[in-house]
Design a protein around this nucleic acid. Structure first.
Lengths: 117, 117
DNA sequence: ACTCATACTTACATTCTTATCAGTACCCGG
DNA sequence: CCGGGTACTGATAAGAATGTAAGTATGAGT
């Protein structure tokens, strides 16, 4: 994954997967689609994610330009995360995938996952 | 990832990512959309993948029902991989994502990937 | 002083994914 | 009987992703 120079992709799908790949980014994007959320809200909204991993994902998504981080200088601290236009566009592009998943979720759940991974 | 029982998902997107997640499955799906390919053809069509990883991915996608494996008892051996209906439907659902990637590929390429991963 | 809440950090451990490379079985042409 | 092509399999290792648990800073309220 590490490259000193510009990374190249074989096709659009390849590029898209590089941006939204991993277990959590899709969910985070999905969770933020209705408006900004604070760090703690986000953590509660994405079940199963640890604080550390959430922060790593958020940083990464900030770097890729998917989301915006706004901090309010208060105590206790308040930080809000929201989708950028770029993030919104990706979210729209992923909507059909989400629908597909919902349509087939029962079939997907009975896949013998423990034999695979 | 390993569970003895049925796996549950928080939403359709979560389920979809479980099925097509990883670096290669999207590409393989994409590569097979125009018709069946033999193992060797597939390996040459997906640049950068190793034989072993390709096989692992193919096995997994066979188990999840995305593709069909047809072997012809010949020498030298011939095995063809093709998308199932399920695979085709996932491919259609991913098409917008591929388009999104193509539209933004330049922006994605200049992301400082080496600072992230 | 002391506790509370928030948004992180840090160190460390574990598990998952991907890579490298050698080897197998089969028959055919030379 | 030797090498070539095909589709694998296996051992091993490196690297990436994820998880766990603890600690930090700040000021307001008690």
């Amino acid at each position: 994954m590490k490259q000193t120079k510009k990374r190249t992709f074989t096709c659009g799908l390849d590029a898209a997967i590089a941006v939204m790949g991993g277990k959590w980014k899709g969910l985070i994007l999905f969770t933020l689609q209705d408006g900004p959320l604070r760090f703690g809200e986000l953590r509660r909204a994405v079940p199963g994610i640890s604080e550390r991993v959430l922060i790593l994902q958020l940083r990464e998504m900030e770097t890729t330009g998917l989301l915006h981080r706004e901090m309010y200088h208060q105590v206790p601290p308040k930080v809000e995360y929201s989708l950028t236009e770029f993030g919104h566009s990706l979210n729209s592009a992923m909507a059909p995938l989400g629908e597909w998943g919902e349509e087939h979720i029962e079939r997907i759940e009975v896949i013998p996952w423990d034999e695979i991974r």
